[in-house]
């Protein structure tokens, strides 16, 4: 099959459609404007639902409603808009509703700028909304990933009845690259006994997160925890390359991982023993693999487009067994190979 040249933002739309997304609700914000624009054209063509909401707050709640009826549904935004969605995300987790949420990150804080960034790692992985919850976070680093991860996100969301975030960034969203339009293989349909579709010949159902009865909320949270444990056990994903003999392992996700790989290739060509570990799921974080890679005599360099967020998780995983250094560019800056090589030269 020949590859198709496509923008990251468009690839994620096509991945969603391939995976059976029935509705998209969103609000314009750069650098993800191609998503609502493309969906506004494609969804009606296919007899599916597109609606431009009045705000990101409304959009995530439209997602909640559509999800409660058991259909695959998606919203997308960029950092400031994703902040507005946090309330709804917390409710989705509490109500155990599946949904796919895309954050094509831009620089912050505040309005920041429209350049790519990775500054929402904490928000995405540590729970940007209220309450004690976790959310699956996938970190695409190519246009291919934008397509494939979106399909995966829908499957994981349905499998665990929980929202899944695609944590992309302005660079991956805006770039074009050739991709294979891989065929979507439908996952097994799970339990549907929670779907609101009218109490016809059955007892009424309710979708809720309010649990006021004695002990009910704690029981609910313990059940959620069991689910999160299951996700950690089954769904942790990481890609490693050339780590066996590596003296330095670069740990990077998303767009930064691309730079890490090209840096590795350049330095390997010059005989330097460099490896890369790229977390594909940011939550669950690949704690175990990173911990196993932390061997005496080795050093880690964590590279991110922020002032040091994932590096905290890497340090927890390494647990003092090796030095962990950091190379980052905050909102407004992009990590690049020249600086990464310079940084490694200083290690």
């Amino acid at each position: 099959m020949k590859k198709t040249l496509m923008k990251g933002n468009i690839a994620l739309c096509e991945g969603a459609i391939a995976a059976g997304c029935k509705a998209y609700f969103g609000y314009p914000i750069t650098p993800q404007n191609e998503v609502p624009a493309h969906m506004s054209k494609r969804m009606p063509e296919l007899g599916l639902v597109f609606l431009q909401a009045e705000s990101e707050v409304a959009a995530i709640n439209m997602v909640l409603g559509a999800s409660a009826t058991g259909v695959r549904v998606m919203t997308s935004s960029s950092s400031p808009g994703v902040s507005l969605k946090q309330e709804g995300i917390s409710y989705l987790v509490g109500c155990e509703l599946p949904a796919v949420i895309v954050n094509v990150q831009r620089g912050g804080p505040g309005l920041g700028n429209i350049s790519g960034s990775q500054a929402d790692y904490f928000q995405a992985t540590k729970g940007g909304g209220h309450g004690d919850y976790r959310m699956i976070v996938l970190a695409p680093s190519s246009v291919q990933d934008m397509y494939d991860h979106t399909m995966l996100a829908f499957d994981l969301a349905d499998k665990y009845r929980t929202p899944v975030m695609l944590l992309a960034d302005g660079v991956v969203g805006q770039m074009m690259e050739p991709l294979m339009l891989n065929k979507y293989i439908p996952a097994a349909t799970g339990d549907r006994s929670w779907v609101l579709d009218g109490a016809r010949g059955r007892e009424p159902r309710s979708v809720k997160s309010l649990l006021m009865a004695e002990g009910a909320l704690e029981r609910h949270n313990l059940e959620l925890r069991k689910k999160f444990d299951l996700i950690e056990a089954n769904e942790t994903r990481i890609e490693t390359k050339n780590t066996d003999d590596a003296e330095i392992i670069i740990v990077a996700f998303g767009i930064s991982a691309r730079v890490a790989y090209s840096t590795m290739r350049a330095l390997r060509a010059a005989g330097k023993k460099i490896g890369v570990a790229r977390p594909v799921t940011l939550w669950p974080f690949p704690q175990k693999t990173i911990s196993e890679l932390a061997k005496p005599g080795r050093k880690f360099l964590v590279a991110e487009m922020n002032m040091g967020q994932m590096v905290e998780d890497v340090r927890l995983a390494v647990n003092g067994k090796c030095p962990v250094e950091f190379y980052g560019r905050p909102g407004g800056g992009l990590v690049n190979q020249e600086e990464m090589i310079e940084r490694i030269n200083k290690m």
């Binding site: 639902v49 409660a68 979708v207 309010l210």
Partner: peptide
């Protein structure tokens, strides 16, 4: 059948369902 909604968001939730 009844769904909960965050404070103030029922019209958005209803929109999602009805659409």
């Amino acid at each position: 059948d009844v769904s909960e909604a965050p404070h103030g968001r029922p019209p958005a939730v209803a929109t999602g369902i009805k659409r």
